[in-house]
Nucleic acid binder design. Sequence first.
DNA 1: ATTGCTGCAAAACGTTTGCACCTAT
DNA 2: ATAGGTGCAAACGTTTTGCAGCAAT
Lengths: 151, 151
Amino acid sequence: MKNKQAADIFREFLKNGKNRITPERFEVLEAALEFEGHFSADELYIMMKNGKSRVSRATVYKTLELLASCDLISLRNFGDNMKRYESSFKKQNHDHLICMDCGRIVEFINPILSKLETEICKELDFEPSSYSFNLFTRCKNKKNCKYYNEK
Amino acid sequence: MKNKQAADIFREFLKNGKNRITPERFEVLEAALEFEGHFSADELYIMMKNGKSRVSRATVYKTLELLASCDLISLRNFGDNMKRYESSFKKQNHDHLICMDCGRIVEFINPILSKLETEICKELDFEPSSYSFNLFTRCKNKKNCKYYNEK
DNA sequence: ATTGCTGCAAAACGTTTGCACCTAT
DNA sequence: ATAGGTGCAAACGTTTTGCAGCAAT
């Protein structure tokens, strides 16, 4: 177990919710934290299969939901109809710029957004939980964009 | 045809893109503009079917894409894996607060967001196209929330 | 002993596609 | 005449579900 601290958080979360502590769940946790960048549930499942894991697709899907509930990973939506996740353990909260031509996803941090979240929720009288701010763009120079050109 | 002005915009857009002008496309336009609030492609299709329209599901899906391209409607993503649309004809650009408990969607307008869009895109050197800012929340008083309680 | 979890396959869901026919140009 | 659109049903990709057996409590 490489991320003992994350595992402790997950174990505590499972206990409090009267969920069982199973080796499969910790396998998924570890794979999710190791994954570089954004991944879909199926991508993670395939990666784990290739790594000779015997965890099932259903378990991967369900465990990712649990991990998102306890904020060890974040759920993202980039406009395709697909849930994506990324590790949020020991990582600063950030937002995403998506290029609709080349598919690149650039992360950025802007401190105003979480202030806006607090402010607007207060005004409308809702309890904030999370927010998403996505910028959909097109890269300027297709000729110089290696991501666009390699497609 | 109730929305002559929108129809003109659509007709012009179709011509410029060498798309044909068909009665089916204008039927979808009209239904989309009449729909109150947010709708999925399938919801619109079902509604049209119930209204005795003979337009096919495929045509609805494709026409909604065209309508979004010429900004007569806006494409939204509220975190479920489903494309949602809403009329944006003669309507101010706005963002959404989603209550994850009762399902309510509240619209709000905040002028800072489009400034942020411009600013961040400039800094990262991308051409802005659109953005989405969603606040995921929980309503504060379940007891007094009629949306929560009617479920 | 009792739930709850797992793996598997099947089903569900929204969406896209292939194709023969039709229609706007 | 011809390119493009339509309707239908089948295919698609992601996610969820039902269920029998298994394992954590």
